[in-house]
Every structure is written in structure tokens, then in C-alpha cells.
Measured scan of single mutants.
Amino acid sequence: GMDVRRLKVNELREELQRRGLDTRGLKAELAERLQAALSGPSSG
């Protein structure tokens, strides 16, 4: 899988935006949010 901790802030935001998620917050928050999205149930 993707290691969200290795991504830069702008990369985290890009991935979040692609999934329609909130791109605001600290890098740690963005990484946590993206990780949750990646490990969560895949819809679609």
C-alpha cells in the first residue's frame, strides 16, 4: 500500500482532494485522514 507518512503535504492534499476529502489541517492530520481512507472500506 501507500505510505502516507512519506508523502509531502501537497501530495497528501492531492490524494485527499482526489477522494473528495478535506484538505485542511496539519500534515499529521492529512496523513491520518488519508490513511483512514485507504484502509477503510472501498466503495464503488
Rank of each mutant, 00 (worst) to 15 (best):
G1D: 11
G1Y: 06
G1M: 11
G1P: 13
G1E: 11
G1N: 12
G1C: 15
G1H: 14
G1T: 11
G1Q: 12
M2V: 12
M2P: 10
M2Q: 08
M2K: 08
M2W: 08
M2N: 07
M2L: 14
D3Q: 09
D3T: 06
D3G: 06
V4E: 03
V4S: 04
V4F: 05
V4N: 04
V4Q: 03
V4C: 11
R5V: 08
R5T: 13
R5A: 12
R5Q: 11
R5H: 14
R6F: 09
R6S: 12
R6V: 07
R6I: 09
R6M: 10
R6W: 07
R6Q: 11
R6G: 10
L7N: 02
L7E: 02
L7F: 05
L7P: 02
L7S: 02
L7D: 02
L7K: 04
L7A: 04
K8A: 10
K8W: 01
K8H: 10
K8Q: 10
K8R: 10
K8C: 08
K8E: 14
K8D: 15
V9G: 03
V9A: 07
V9S: 06
V9D: 06
N10L: 07
N10F: 06
N10H: 14
N10R: 13
N10S: 15
N10Q: 14
N10K: 14
E11Q: 11
E11N: 03
E11A: 06
E11L: 04
E11D: 07
L12R: 00
L12H: 00
L12Q: 00
R13E: 04
R13L: 08
R13K: 09
E14F: 10
E14N: 09
E14Y: 10
E14Q: 11
E14P: 00
E15D: 02
E15Y: 04
E15F: 04
E15A: 08
L16W: 00
L16P: 01
Q17K: 15
Q17D: 09
Q17E: 12
Q17N: 11
Q17I: 07
R18D: 06
R18S: 07
R18A: 09
R18N: 09
R19W: 04
R19H: 08
R19N: 05
R19K: 06
R19S: 03
R19I: 07
G20R: 03
G20A: 02
G20L: 01
G20D: 06
G20C: 06
G20F: 02
G20N: 06
G20W: 01
L21Q: 06
L21G: 04
L21E: 05
L21F: 00
L21M: 08
L21V: 05
L21H: 05
L21D: 03
L21W: 00
L21A: 05
D22K: 06
D22T: 02
D22A: 06
D22V: 06
D22W: 00
D22M: 03
T23G: 02
T23W: 05
T23P: 11
T23L: 00
T23H: 08
T23E: 07
R24I: 13
R24V: 12
R24W: 04
R24D: 15
G25P: 00
G25E: 02
G25N: 01
G25M: 02
G25Q: 01
G25V: 00
G25T: 00
L26G: 15
L26Q: 15
L26H: 15
L26Y: 07
L26S: 15
L26K: 15
K27F: 11
K27G: 06
K27M: 11
K27N: 05
K27Y: 13
K27L: 13
K27V: 11
K27Q: 11
K27D: 07
K27S: 07
A28H: 15
A28S: 13
A28C: 12
A28G: 10
A28R: 11
E29W: 04
E29R: 05
E29Q: 09
E29N: 05
E29V: 09
E29K: 06
E29A: 09
E29I: 07
L30V: 01
L30K: 00
L30S: 00
L30Y: 01
L30T: 01
L30H: 00
A31T: 08
A31Y: 07
A31V: 15
A31L: 15
A31P: 01
A31M: 15
E32Y: 05
E32R: 12
E32G: 07
E32N: 09
E32I: 10
E32K: 12
E32L: 09
E32D: 11
R33I: 02
R33Y: 02
R33V: 02
R33W: 03
R33Q: 02
R33K: 03
R33T: 02
R33N: 02
L34N: 01
L34D: 00
L34T: 00
L34R: 00
L34S: 00
L34H: 00
L34P: 01
L34W: 00
L34I: 02
L34E: 00
Q35N: 09
Q35G: 07
Q35I: 15
Q35E: 13
Q35F: 09
Q35S: 10
Q35R: 13
A36N: 12
A36Y: 05
A36P: 02
A37I: 07
A37H: 11
A37D: 05
L38K: 04
L38R: 05
L38S: 04
L38M: 10
L38Q: 05
L38F: 04
L38V: 08
L38P: 02
L38I: 13
S39T: 14
S39G: 14
S39Q: 14
S39E: 12
G40N: 13
G40Y: 09
G40A: 12
G40D: 11
G40E: 12
G40T: 11
P41W: 08
P41M: 14
P41G: 14
P41S: 14
P41K: 12
S42T: 13
S42A: 13
S42K: 11
S42V: 13
S42G: 13
S43D: 13
S43I: 13
S43G: 13
S43K: 12
S43L: 13
G44K: 12
G44S: 12
G44E: 13
G44V: 13
G44H: 12
G44C: 14
G44A: 12
G44I: 13
G44M: 12
G44Y: 09
